[in-house]
Design a protein around this nucleic acid. Structure first.
Length: 561
DNA sequence: CTTGATACTT
């Protein structure tokens, strides 16, 4: 039976393993059972450690049961670990519950860890509580430093378990495990997840020993919950940095929209020359290039990736496609997509979004159909791009149909951004009344983006009376929250009521409500140009504006607006 | 006998 099943599991590496099985069977037949037990144990343990497939794990499991080895800690532990790596939590649980006596701490730890890495983190904590009950009576199952590492990690995965994590922290101190580096690291990163930077810093300060992970976790804390200059202060004090430390800094700059800093940090890392950038770093840096329109740096990174044979994971491909598309090189984006072997949802989505960004709506929809044909289900981000594509290529009916079938076709309920796309779609097509009606029947509260889409269409189509109606509707609905001022002032601006615009702008300044102006970048011949909304600072602003006017004129001639 | 902690954007 063993022979047949292992032949079925296939693959090249199984041969070596199969000869292992053969040795085991051979050994069993050669020597008396009593003498072969410990050898058998060692052999099965080795086999489990190198098992490559679920089927192999199951075969060894069968041998463990068959040879009555169910009480060997090392075998059961390795079995649990193996089932966990295959995502078979039910099997993990079964092996654990079939342990012949009260499981020792080591096995509790493995099961708690197995759940802590999944979305069932509560189960880790449930097991931990159960363990505490047993541990009170049996010294066999008392939690140790590993147990706390796993439970604290579990608390950081789920966003609602701060109190439980704090209880663990108390127990850690009581048992004296707070001097353990890994426990301390788990605590620091847990407090970071819950934005408790002060607590994270306190744990950090009180740790008797720290390693690179401790320092990196603290840097991450300041980079996500504080500002980058605080993160920098910790970063420069670090005794040693690894790839993750740099990744945390670069991603922090990107999160804070400090794209130039991100690129500088990346170059600093390369200048030190002792570490190779990894996938996370490439993804962040490419995102910075995309935001800055820094095509030259982006191309250089692409070249670097190819030259160093960095595997083109779907994440890297996605970042490259996005970078090229945002830098205006849609052909390069397409080429990267064509060269990517393992396309997933993200790769497809970034291409569709890039095509749509470039006004190639028909092509975007075509790619969307191809994606569906490959059996890939879209997510809400894909659908935003697809709806935008419809909007930009005038495929109104197609867009409406996609919008109203989102729920039924893919189980995605329309969110505010999808409504925004729908309103944009209808507005651009001149169906202003339909758009207004759709907004009024929405079950989500419309935001400024949505009103702005409709209003700018009112302006384009010269429909002042509808704009008036919208103003009345908005002030009746009392939509003052977030961007309300801006919205109202845009409303009046679109009606040409400049007195009202001025009144709102002034009250905004009095309230100290200063919004940062929109900003965009483009790189031409190696020079990055920066433009702010209503820019007057660029040296060539007069020439740029006259060109812009010319473009706008030609658009209105061709587009028949 | 044997289990640990840090990273990515759209």
């Amino acid at each position: 039976m063993l022979y047949k099943r292992s032949r079925m599991c296939g693959g090249c590496d199984y041969l070596r393993l199969w000869s292992g099985f053969f040795d085991v069977v051979f050994a069993i037949h050669q020597t008396p059972l009593s003498q072969s037990m410990s050898q058998l144990n060692v052999r099965l343990y080795q086999l489990l450690k190198h098992a490559r497939s679920l089927s192999q794990t199951k075969q060894i499991h069968a041998q463990i049961i068959f040879r009555s080895l169910g009480g060997s800690n090392n075998l059961i532990g390795e079995l649990i670990r193996s089932y966990r790596t295959h995502g078979k939590l039910k099997s993990v649980r079964k092996v654990f519950s079939e342990y012949p006596s009260l499981p020792p701490t080591f096995l509790w730890n493995l099961v708690i860890q197995a759940y802590s890495k999944t979305s069932f983190t509560e189960e880790s904590l449930h097991l931990f509580k159960e363990m505490l009950l047993f541990g009170g009576r049996h010294s066999l199952a008392v939690p140790d430093d590993y147990t706390f590492t796993f439970t604290i990690t579990a608390c950081s995965r789920h966003r609602t378990l701060l109190a439980f994590g704090q209880n663990c922290h108390t127990m850690v101190i009581k048992h004296g495990y707070d001097s353990d580096v890994c426990v301390g690291n788990a605590l620091v990163s847990m407090y970071v997840v819950y934005s408790r930077t002060v607590s994270a810093q306190k744990v950090f300060d009180e740790m008797p020993q720290r390693d690179t992970i401790t320092w990196t976790s603290l840097v991450k804390g300041y980079a996500t919950n504080g500002n980058m200059s605080q993160a920098e202060k910790v970063f420069v004090k670090m005794p040693e940095r690894n790839e993750v430390s740099w990744a945390v800094m670069i991603a922090g700059y990107v999160r804070h929209e400090m794209y130039n800093h991100a690129l500088r940090c990346f170059n600093d890392m390369l200048a030190e020359g002792n570490l190779e950038p990894n996938e996370a770093i490439f993804v962040s840096v490419l995102s910075a290039c995309a935001h800055l329109g820094q095509i030259s740096q982006g191309k250089w990174i692409h070249f670097y990736i190819d030259k160093n044979r960095v595997p083109k994971s779907s994440n890297i491909a996605t970042a490259l496609i996005d970078m090229y598309a945002k830098c205006g090189k849609i052909d390069c984006a397409k080429q990267v997509f064509d060269e990517t072997n393992r396309r997933d949802l993200l790769t497809w989505t970034s291409l569709i979004s890039g095509l749509s960004m470039h006004g190639l709506g028909k092509e975007a929809l075509h790619m969307f159909d191809e994606m569906l044909a490959k059996g890939i289900k879209p997510d809400n981000i894909t659908l935003v791009s697809v709806l935008n594509a419809c909007s930009h290529s005038g495929q109104v009916e197609e867009g409406i149909s996609i919008f109203y079938n989102m729920e039924r076709s893919w189980g995605i309920s329309p969110k505010i951004e999808h409504f925004g796309c729908l309103i944009d779609l209808l507005s651009r097509a001149g169906r202003l009344e339909d758009a207004f009606k759709a907004i009024k029947t929405m079950d989500i509260k419309p935001d400024a983006v949505i009103w702005r889409a409709l209003l700018s269409a009112c302006r384009v189509h010269g429909n002042a009376s509808l704009a008036e109606g919208i103003i009345q509707h908005v002030s009746r609905a009392g939509d003052g929250g977030g961007g309300g001022h801006l919205l109202l002032s845009n409303l009046y601006a679109s009606l040409g009521q400049w007195e009202n615009v001025r009144r709102i702008r002034e009250s905004k300044v009095e309230n100290g409500d200063v919004s940062t102006p929109g900003c965009s970048y483009i790189e031409i011949d190696g020079v990055v140009h920066e433009f702010l909304a209503a820019d007057k600072l660029h040296p060539l602003i007069a020439a740029i504006n006259s060109k812009l006017n010319e473009v706008m004129k030609r658009i209105s001639l061709d587009g028949g607006l």
